[in-house]
Design a protein around this nucleic acid. Structure first.
Lengths: 342, 342
DNA sequence: CTGAAAGCGCTTACAG
DNA sequence: CTGAAAGCGCTTACAG
């Protein structure tokens, strides 16, 4: 008991705690702080001998420059912020992961801010990032209306799956419209009755997919179509499926995400609807779950890696003021992946 | 074409870009920077009238204090860093999400660093966070051996699902051992043949679960047991399941995660193994996927929220130097959730 | 090749 | 109640 019920207090040991500064290294090496700074940044002239002395001292004492001080001084932090509405969403988290990889390889650290779909938090984090002196921001999805007033300075900004109202922002995202067209065209060949299932909360991408769906379906007047808005209420979803099942007709569903598709698939199992015999189902994302479901999900694959790299590349260009040739709005192609649910 | 092929260059407009400083606000209000600082931080004495003047100027111009400068000055950033091996993992991302919520409510911003299971990146980000002057760090899982030497200063540190070698670090995590015991005891009642499936990469939690499994199974000498290490090779997994199926005996599987369980479940479907009739399956986590699978997964639920809040609470105590009463190592209870796969 | 000094935007004893 | 000044840890013209 005595051992486990340890009382732990943080040890205040200012001597040990005292982090090394450039000044200390300068003293240790017998040169000025200016010189130390020069060798650290390999910037300016210094003799080879000085370099060695300074460098060995740095290594010996494990000195690490204070980025905060540096940022303040040079007004640049080599850090970019990502604002993401829900890190728990697999498309978002994998995109963020890829962005981080790209930026890391290009010398930037990434600060990820999760807003939990909370507008207030988004504003807050935008300010935090700004006052944190990040060099640029990537902001993913979120609400439809983006108050660019939240950003006081002209920080380089990339929007993913979100319409920038701001002229200074670039957009990159999947070609949701084309994806919806692909899915719909495929279903049209198989069934006479198609429902698109969208989440209740509307953001940019579902709306574009809806457009793609509507435009396609318009070309086939014989097809019966509907929109189902999913608010997470399972019973509503069940009732909807029961009704479809009772018609004894084959019907198709185009779900806004693989996650949604998987939920529908589960209900189908429970209700004894045969997939793909009576119900054809297409998801969106090609999330990990698409391959874990049974049957595996036919879906529209988003290319997170491409999106992430484009976003990273453009952002760095904005930061380093390299002119960007090309469209302000980049659409990354998507792909129909056919599996077991169609 | 002309419209879409816009050439975008970042506008360098130093006048507009010039962020407001405390000095500017001081000039605008006709007081000293010291006074402005006092009203911003509501710290020290100033007249009500001064407060009003300063505050209205701040609002009018949308001034936001520079956190970098402040951090440098007061040696505290009100920011904590989280290091997570894979943000794509649902247990991790949901834990991180919960930690963020807790810390936000307590006045801290959160910087999330994703290491993609890369040791080098972990070291790097540890240094980045430190030189970013975060007030504390929460580090989740990752490799077995934690080089505390990566941290030069005595930063407050909480480890989640990872053994701190460092005396100054606290541990919080699920009671993996008890979870494994629960799962195993349950299976023991149903089947005579149990295999535990663990990931190839070993970290702390699977090893504890293995201990729980082994200790439990020891009490039932009649039970046939095995360990299967999953390296992601599907064919190996298939062969394993085929072999089990061919015995025509009911068998049980305790998988290290719901994700793994879902993969096994899919293979079972493909191989025509009836779950739960011939195969009983228990996962771990109670991840979203557990409820989306068919049949829904019996699993051991981890309490991410509790873990997150404990980690946040303890970290803040360390940061603010409030003595911590109690164990250095906190185990959060888990729960057996019975669903369709057993 | 190197150093002294100014300054990034803040806060905080100190003095009044 | 308020201001002048020092200083957090860096970088970078400037001068030599």
């Amino acid at each position: 008991m005595s051992k486990r019920l340890l009382k732990i207090t943080w040890k205040v040991d200012d001597k040990l705690n005292h982090k090394l500064s450039i000044k200390k290294i300068a003293q240790l090496t017998g040169v000025s702080t200016a010189t130390v700074s020069r060798v650290i940044n390999d910037n300016g002239r210094f003799s080879e001998e000085t370099r060695k002395r300074v460098q060995s001292a740095i290594e010996k004492y494990g000195y690490e420059p204070n980025r905060v001080a540096k940022s303040l001084r040079v007004n640049k932090s080599n850090t970019v912020g990502i604002i993401v509405p829900d890190i728990t969403n697999s498309f978002f988290s994998s995109t963020v992961q890829q962005i981080e990889v790209y930026l890391f390889d290009h010398g930037y650290s990434t600060i990820i801010c999760n807003t939990a779909h909370n507008q207030e938090k988004e504003s807050k984090y935008l300010k935090v990032l700004e006052s944190e002196m990040v060099d640029g921001i990537i902001i993913i999805s979120g609400a439809l209306d983006f108050k660019s007033t939240d950003l006081h300075s002209k920080l380089p900004l990339i929007c993913i799956d979100r319409n920038p109202k701001d002229d200074n922002a670039l957009f990159v995202g999947s070609d949701h419209y084309a994806g919806a067209v692909l899915a719909t065209e495929y279903l049209v060949k198989e069934v006479q009755d198609i429902t698109i299932v969208l989440p209740d909360r509307k953001s940019v991408s579902p709306l574009e997919r809806l457009r793609g769906f509507s435009d396609t379906v318009k070309k086939y007047p014989a097809i019966k179509t509907a929109i189902f808005l999913d608010d997470g209420n399972e019973e509503r979803l069940q009732r909807f499926l029961v009704q479809k099942k009772s018609t004894n007709n084959i019907f198709g569903i185009f779900a806004n995400s693989d996650n949604l598709a998987a939920k529908i698939l589960l209900q189908a199992h429970l209700l004894g609807i045969n997939v793909p015999k009576q119900m054809k189902l297409i998801g969106f994302d090609d999330a990990p779950i698409a391959q874990i479901c049974y049957p595996q999900l036919t879906t529209i694959r988003q290319n997170e890696k491409e999106i992430a790299e484009l976003a990273g590349e453009k952002l760095i260009k904005l930061i380093t003021r390299i002119p960007i040739q090309g469209k302000k709005s980049i659409r990354v192609p998507v792909k129909l992946i056919i599996r077991g649910t169609t």
